[in-house]
C-alpha cells in the first residue's frame, strides 16, 4: 500500500527531525551566558563554589558528552533531573503539563467546529452581509497579539463587569475544577487560529462550490445541504487541515503568553523559568515535548489531507 510506505518514511524523518531539534536547542543553551551553577551560586559567585556546583551537576564534561548522555538517558526513558529543583524532570512535567494540556485540548475542541462553521457560513453567500462581518472580523482579529487581547478582555470582563476571574491564581493545577478561570484564556487562544482557519475554509468552500463536480451533484438533484457538507467540504478543508498543524506552533506560543497573563502554572511558565535559570534538562525535555508534538501533528495533518483529497500531494 502506498499509504503505508509513506507513513513509515514520514515517521522516520520525523524522529530524525525531533533528535536534530533537541541537538540544536542544546547547542543554543550552550551559547547562553552563565549556567545553572552560576544561578545556584546566586549572590555569592565564589569561583570555588561555582566549580564545585558544576562538578556536582555534571556540567564538567564536553558538550558532546553531555548531549549524548542526555540522549541515551531519554532512550532509557530517563529525562534527567532538574538542576535547580533537584527533582526528576518527568515529575516536573507531570505537574505543569495538565493545565497546558487542558487549555490546548479545550481550544482545539472548540476551534475546529467553530472555524469550519464560520468558514462555511461565510462561503454560502460570498459578499453578503454575513460574509462581510465574518471576513472583516477575522482579518482584524488575526493580527492582534494574544497579550494585548487578553489585557483588553480582562479589563472589560474581569475588572469592569466582574463576570470572570482576572487570573487563574488559586485554581491550582486543575483548571477544570474551576471552569470560570478557563473562559478568558481559551477565548484569547482561539482568536488567532479561528481567523486564519475559517478564512481558508471559506476560500476552499467558494472554490469547491463553484467547481464542476459540485455543479454536477446539484444537476443530479442532490440537496444543496448535502452538496455543501458531503461533497464540497472535504475538498475545501484540505488546506485548512495543514494550517491547523501550523496552528500548534501558534498555540504553543500563545500558551506561553496566556499563561503569563493569567498566571497559569503550566508548561509555558516552566519554560520561561527554566531558560532564566539555565536549567538545561528541563529546557531539553520541553523542547523534546514541543518538537514531538509539532512533528506528530504535522504528520497527522498530512495523512488527513492525503485521505481527504487523494489527488493532492500529501507530502507537500
Amino acid at each position: 500500500m502506498i499509504m503505508h510506505g509513506y507513513v513509515v518514511r514520514r515517521l522516520s524523518l520525523g524522529l530524525a527531525q525531533i533528535v536534530l531539534v533537541t541537538a540544536l536547542v542544546f547547542a543554543l543553551t550552550e551559547a547562553l551566558p552563565g549556567d545553572a551553577a552560576v544561578v545556584l551560586a546566586g549572590d555569592a559567585p565564589d569561583p570555588g563554589r561555582v566549580a564545585r556546583l558544576r562538578h556536582e551537576l555534571g556540567l564538567t564534561g564536553s558538550a558532546a558528552e553531555r548531549y549524548t548522555g542526555w540522549l541515551l538517558g531519554v532512550l532509557r526513558g530517563d529525562l534527567g533531573t532538574s538542576m535547580i529543583a533537584g527533582r526528576p524532570v518527568a515529575a516536573f512535567i507531570a505537574e505543569s503539563g495538565p493545565p497546558t494540556a487542558q487549555l490546548a485540548a479545550i481550544t482545539l475542541l472548540l476551534l475546529v467546529p467553530l472555524a469550519v462553521a464560520g468558514g462555511v457560513a461565510a462561503a454560502v453567500r460570498p459578499g453578503r452581509a454575513l460574509d462581510r462581518v465574518i471576513s472583516g472580523t477575522s482579518v482584524a482579529l488575526y493580527a492582534v497579539p494574544e497579550f494585548a487581547l487578553a489585557i483588553v478582555l480582562g479589563a472589560v470582563f474581569a475588572l469592569r463587569l466582574g463576570w470572570l476571574p482576572p487570573t487563574a491564581i488559586g485554581a491550582g493545577g486543575d483548571l477544570l475544577a474551576d471552569p470560570a478561570v478557563l473562559v478568558l484564556p481559551v477565548l484569547v487562544l482561539l482568536a488567532r487560529p479561528i481567523c486564519s482557519i475559517s478564512r481558508l475554509v471559506r476560500g476552499g468552500m467558494i472554490d469547491a462550490l463553484g467547481s464542476g463536480y459540485a455543479a454536477h451533484a446539484r444537476r443530479l438533484g442532490l440537496a444543496p445541504r448535502r452538496v455543501r457538507w458531503a461533497h464540497a467540504l472535504p475538498n475545501a478543508v484540505t488546506p485548512a487541515v495543514q494550517q491547523l498543524a501550523r496552528t500548534t506552533d501558534w498555540l504553543l506560543g500563545g500558551v506561553i503568553t496566556v499563561e503569563a497573563v493569567f498566571v497559569v502554572p503550566g508548561l509555558g511558565s516552566a519554560l520561561t523559568g527554566a531558560v532564566a535559570a539555565r536549567d538545561v534538562p528541563v529546557i531539553l525535555a520541553l523542547a523534546l515535548l514541543f518538537a514531538a508534538t509539532t512533528v506528530t501533528v504535522n504528520l497527522l495533518a498530512d495523512i488527513a489531507a492525503y485521505r481527504l483529497a487523494p489527488r493532492s500531494d500529501g507530502a507537500g
Binding site: 531539534v21 540544536l24 518538537a291 512533528v295
Partner: peptide, 14 residues
C-alpha cells in the same frame, strides 16, 4: 519544526 516562541526565548537569552 522548532516552536518559534521556544526559539525566541532561547536566542534572546543569549
Amino acid at each position: 519544526a522548532i516552536p518559534s516562541m521556544l526559539l525566541l526565548i532561547l536566542l534572546a537569552a543569549a
